[in-house]
């Protein structure tokens, strides 16, 4: 789909991770991040850690932080729901500066939300008191570095909601119209 609208490119995400000193990316791939995954694997400064279930990501990230490195959890909002007790028991109770990059499945700025995954995402983050940044286009890229700085400053988890499910994160020229 060619719309001429600004999109979020995966290269922006990789550049922002590098600026923030990310060393380990703990992830379950989802439909909006397949090309991003390929870029991350090619980047020598990243260790990509695929896991079997999203709840693993926060606890692995905690271990990486205790070891003095910088992790990021890359999951979908459905995975955030699955991770509830890890977010509570590890990230919030301990005060871990874990940045969670969350694919905002179902979100559409210009249309009604028809997917319950999108419907529950922000209310749950509000309930946990987790600050979040919405990232939809390349122009929003600096919010990613801001989220890492916020997590470090507050010793709390911070979320980045990737609100461009259908455009920027698919392979270039690969029919990335969702």
């Amino acid at each position: 789909m060619t719309t001429g609208q600004s999109i979020l490119s995966p290269e922006t995400m990789v550049d922002e991770f590098k600026k923030s000193g990310v060393t380990h990316i703990i992830t379950i791939p989802n439909s909006e991040t397949n090309y991003l995954y390929e870029l991350m694997v090619k980047e020598p400064s990243f260790t990509v850690v695929p896991v079997a279930r999203e709840g693993e990501t926060m606890a692995i990230a905690a271990g990486v932080l205790i070891g003095g490195k910088t992790p990021v959890c890359l999951i979908q909002n459905t995975g955030m729901f699955e991770s509830g007790d890890s977010i509570r028991g590890i990230a919030l109770d301990v005060g871990m500066p874990i940045v969670m990059v969350i694919g905002y499945r179902g979100y559409d700025r210009h249309n009604d939300t028809v997917d319950s995954a999108a419907y529950y995402t922000e209310p749950i983050l509000h309930t946990w008191g987790i600050k979040f940044y919405l990232v939809e286009t390349d122009e929003d890229g600096p919010r990613i570095s801001k989220a890492f700085a916020e997590a470090r400053r507050t010793s709390r988890p911070v979320a980045i909601l990737v609100g461009d499910e259908f455009h920027g994160f698919n392979r270039p020229g690969g029919g990335g119209g969702g």
């Binding site: 060393t23 692995i60 990230a61 271990g63 070891g67 992790p71």
Partner: peptide
């Protein structure tokens, strides 16, 4: 979750 934390630490260090 202990095994996840231990695994993350082993990777980082």
């Amino acid at each position: 979750k202990g095994m996840n934390v231990a695994f993350g630490l082993a990777l980082a260090r």
